[in-house]
Amino acid sequence: MSVRIEVCGEVVTAYLQGELDHHTAREMREEIDAAIDRNMPTLLVLDFKDITFMDSSGIGLVMGRYRKLQQIKAELHITNTSPHIYKVMKLAGLERLAKIDKGVKANERAK
């Protein structure tokens, strides 16, 4: 499984795992979209802590979910981006679409 979904009230958190490229993006997209359709959240959190690689396919994934969430007036947060992932997202100007929280503190990551 490349995505673990957690639902807490109106918040859906998708913990993405592994490498995010054109090959893996489809499965992640399908799982996230299924969770959105099932739960109709007001907030979707995409957690990148366990993403070990990301190219511009990750941008496509975020932009696609942003558009889907707009239709149900829900917000998007992006969390735990590594410096590399943040660099790719910044290139696309994703910080204009979603709140990006750059990372976890060292002690949180160790848990």
């Binding site: 511009s56 496509g60 290139l91």
Partner: peptide, 14 residues
């Protein structure tokens, strides 16, 4: 299409 960001070359250049 919609799921591609159109940023491939931009990433390469950057």
């Amino acid at each position: 299409g919609e799921e591609r960001a159109g940023l491939g070359f931009a990433v390469m250049q950057s």
